[in-house]
Every structure is written in C-alpha cells, then in structure tokens.
C-alpha cells in the first residue's frame, strides 16, 4: 500500500473507533451517573419488582449495562478491523 492510502486507512479506523467510543460512552454516563445518581429520585417513583427503579440502577442495573457495553465495543471493533483488513495475526 502507498503511504497516503495507509494514512487514509488509519484515519478511517480512528474516526470510526472514536464514534463508537462516544456513543457507548454516552450510554455509560447515562446509566451510571444519570440513572444511578442525577435522576435517581424521579426514577424511584417507578417499581421494578421489589426495587425502586433508581435504586436498582445504582446497585444492579448499571453494572449489567457496563458488561454489555464492553462486549458490544469489542464486537464492533472486531468487525471494523475485519472490514478494514486490520485483524491481528494469531487470533
């Protein structure tokens, strides 16, 4: 590949990566500092079984969402790397 093509490839990869980080990072913020702290009072008016909803986010829900976020990010990046031919050898 020519140097300028490599530059373009790097640029595309990094731009897409940052876009996913921004989207998933927003979700990360919303479920933890959002639902778990800032909006906990209004959410507590709703019940989820025996939980007040805001309390559930703060002590259970946020953690489950964190796990999903990391695996979604890993999957998205693997797919991006496959599309751009940037997979690592030996996987």
């Amino acid at each position: 590949m020519q140097p300028e093509d490599l530059e373009a490839l790097r640029g595309t990869y990094w731009r897409e990566n940052r876009r996913w980080m921004l989207i998933l990072g927003t979700v990360w913020f919303l479920v933890s500092l959002g639902c778990g702290v800032l909006w906990v009072e209004p959410l507590n008016d709703f019940q989820l079984g025996g939980f007040k909803l805001g309390f559930w986010f703060a002590q259970q829900g946020a953690i489950y969402v964190f796990i999903i976020l990391i695996f979604v990010y890993a999957r998205l990046m693997a797919r991006l790397e496959q599309r751009l031919g940037l997979e690592e050898p030996g996987e």
């Binding site: 980080m21 998933l24 990072g25 990360w28 933890s32 778990g36 702290v37 703060a58 002590q59 946020a62 953690i63 964190f66 976020l69 990391i70 990010y73 890993a74």
Partner: peptide, 13 residues
C-alpha cells in the same frame, strides 16, 4: 458499586 465497576468500561475503551 458503580465506581469500582464502571472504570472497566473506560479501561476497555
């Protein structure tokens, strides 16, 4: 609970 788990999202990304 949130602080000591949420950091892993930052770490992974």
């Amino acid at each position: 609970l949130m602080g000591w788990t949420g950091g892993y999202v930052l770490l992974a990304m």
